[in-house]
Write a protein that binds this DNA or RNA. Structure first.
Lengths: 168, 168
DNA sequence: CACGATTTAATCGTGTACGATTTATTTAGG
DNA sequence: CCTAAATAAATCGTACACGATTAAATCGTG
């Protein structure tokens, strides 16, 4: 590895840049923390909007996924959301208890549970799909930057997941 | 608002691009989901590394913050991590039970709890601070892009937090 | 056809997040 | 000084995440 690469690692990932001004925080150069904190910040903006619909953020994602393709299995939803049944099963049961979806065992394969939107769920999905414009101002970045940032994050997520899998 | 701006919102945030190929996912253009999923992916890469130290990811952040400045109050830690006492108090108690930190009431102001690293905590912090180089390959982006992405995310987080506060 | 391997959800335990409330302490105004 | 307001943590209830395990159904091969 080149010296430059080693230094780059130290500077951009380790958060080990010198703090001559004394104002630097402990995580100023940590990419993982920037992602972590941005996720929390997003949730804080989304929460009051989703509260009006009676949804949490992960529930909103499930509704959007079903709006895109209804009757998906728990496993298929998990592939889109990168979650597994241990998280999704109780989440979907709460959505069902609140009247947004219906869970049905697949007649052809009784192992599989398919999730269907109710009329109430479809209405919530329509309302949820209209939220993003309200968020545009909160994001506070030009549209081109939003698109570029989104793409980088998708690549980052793909890279990280591939790396995590390889360690098995 | 210009037509272009309206279209941009629809394309880049709403996830409403047409899916001619039939392969698009439901969240392909959602910035919030890209952030959310990248956070999970990061955690999956970090987890096996932090398991060896006996730390969770938020605990690792607290240890790093204390390594940067020991004896911080719960409130000060919360400002760095964007968390409050309802999350931090139990987390720090678990760190204390595991022997990484000590909690002490401030003598001058008994309301305040200051958190101090133990020798074990300092050793874990030293080991934790050496993790990032191992993650560089997992991230799979050139150093310049990591730095740029990190900066954009900090800006995004700042914008979102400001927007959330304004709604109070 | 039988039976072990595989697949799909569900369950369980631990640890975050976070809104709302509570308790203890300190500060300020009368 | 003495009490009302303010501040700092802690507590409580609900809802994710996720590793590990379990249970039920299906598949594959002899």
């Amino acid at each position: 590895m080149s010296t430059l690469a080693i230094i780059s690692r130290a500077i951009y990932i380790c958060g080990m840049t010198n703090d001559a001004s004394g104002t630097a925080g402990p995580f100023d150069n940590l990419l993982c923390f920037a992602v972590y904190a941005a996720g929390h910040a997003f949730n804080r903006v989304y929460k009051p909007l989703l509260d009006r619909l009676g949804l949490t953020y992960p529930q909103y994602l499930v509704i959007l996924a079903l709006r895109h393709a209804d009757g998906q299995t728990v496993g298929a939803l998990g592939e889109h959301l990168f979650l597994e049944s241990n998280t999704l099963t109780p989440l979907i049961k709460r959505l069902e208890a609140a009247g947004f979806v219906q869970r049905r065992r697949d007649a052809a394969d009784e192992r599989v549970v398919r999730v269907h939107l109710t009329d109430q769920g479809r209405a919530a999905g329509d309302a949820a799909a209209c939220l993003p414009p309200e968020l545009f101002d909160s994001i506070g970045l030009p549209a081109e930057e939003i698109a570029a940032l989104q793409q980088r994050l998708v690549t980052l997520g793909d890279n990280l997941r591939r790396s995590a899998e390889e360690r098995d």
